[in-house]
Nucleic acid binder design. Sequence first.
DNA 1: CAGCATTGTTGGCGGCGCCTACATTGGCTG
DNA 2: CAGCCAATGTAGGCGCCGCCAACAATGCTG
Lengths: 211, 211
Amino acid sequence: MHTIDTLALMQTSPRRYHHGDLRAALLARAEETLREKGTAALSLRELARDLGVSHAAPSRHFKDKQALLDALALVGYERLTRVMAESQADAGEAFRKRLEAMVHAYVGFCLDNAVLLDLMYSIKHDPEASEALQEATRQWSELIEVLVSDGQRSGEVREGSIERVGVPVFATLHGYADLAATGMLPPEIAEHGLDEVIAFMLRGCAPDGRA
Amino acid sequence: MHTIDTLALMQTSPRRYHHGDLRAALLARAEETLREKGTAALSLRELARDLGVSHAAPSRHFKDKQALLDALALVGYERLTRVMAESQADAGEAFRKRLEAMVHAYVGFCLDNAVLLDLMYSIKHDPEASEALQEATRQWSELIEVLVSDGQRSGEVREGSIERVGVPVFATLHGYADLAATGMLPPEIAEHGLDEVIAFMLRGCAPDGRA
DNA sequence: CAGCATTGTTGGCGGCGCCTACATTGGCTG
DNA sequence: CAGCCAATGTAGGCGCCGCCAACAATGCTG
């Protein structure tokens, strides 16, 4: 992953024929634009102008606009997976704590990356999605599966297949994050309501007689 | 709402200078295109060609493309509210039955109108959304509030404010519908998993000691 | 250092959204 | 019922866009 260094280099060296790392620069600038003005307003030509290259230069790195959006979605999945994995790393053992950590990580990511998330979700179910993208989504869904099945092993979560137990949990998590990210839930309620949502999920997946 | 009659008329009368009901025809055709090729592929000029009018004719009815999308979203909200209201009309009294009916109605709508739903959600939180649109979303969220507070009155749902009880329920509902609609949940799992999700929600909002 | 794949440039094509000026229509009013 | 006017549709043009093909600079590799 190329980062600050690359960007600084780009800006200080005014005009080489070859840019250095145009691909990374395109992705970085595209994400900025996405945040500022939304997906619809993203234009390859404008991107090229911003970076001081010709209007056809981006095509050397992304065969068309969709390819750039796919690459952005992939970045998003990698970032999301990292954030969620980190949340589990230092959350202890208790299912409740781990669930809390994951919910906060996921909701936080969705709030910080709302537009990117749109991209990620609108692309993933395409059957011809790239291999890397499929792998990224797999790694990520696996984190939830591990959380749930660990909870089952320790008796904190009711028995049942992942489809039966994990799906409702993830649906709740995803639904809440989406409501918050799209602004359907006013921000002040969204922040305050997280604990209640976690309690709701815990009741929903607790073993019988242990509500 | 103008419907089949209008459309038939449009097709049989080949070329009047005035179309008759271009606005309704635009909305109808736009929704078709949306279903077939997605939001990004919707073009006012193509729409006009399809309907046999000049490329600038649509501007008489929608000041710009966004206005047409807004109108489509409004149609979507009206349709969703109707479907959900109908589900409550003949669902009996029991909270469980009413919740089941509403979940099926909502998920069914999302599966049938996935693209429209995208529009609806991407527009609603715009602070300058039209009055009609705001009213439409209000009517619809009210249906959920009524369901929950009725359940509280009859003792089937735990006490607490709508934010505390209704939001988790709605988040689960919405999340599941979204996962199913975007294809993240394979269709066969999506169909089969509904009952489990409903049970999850019932556990989540049951009064204490009544899981 | 010669050759070649990579990367960037220039120019052009058709389509788009939106604007302005103009044409036709049908309903309202005197 | 005549004439006028607002509503509706048309014609053309502007500047953007994505994509393509032909050409130019670069730097890696034998």
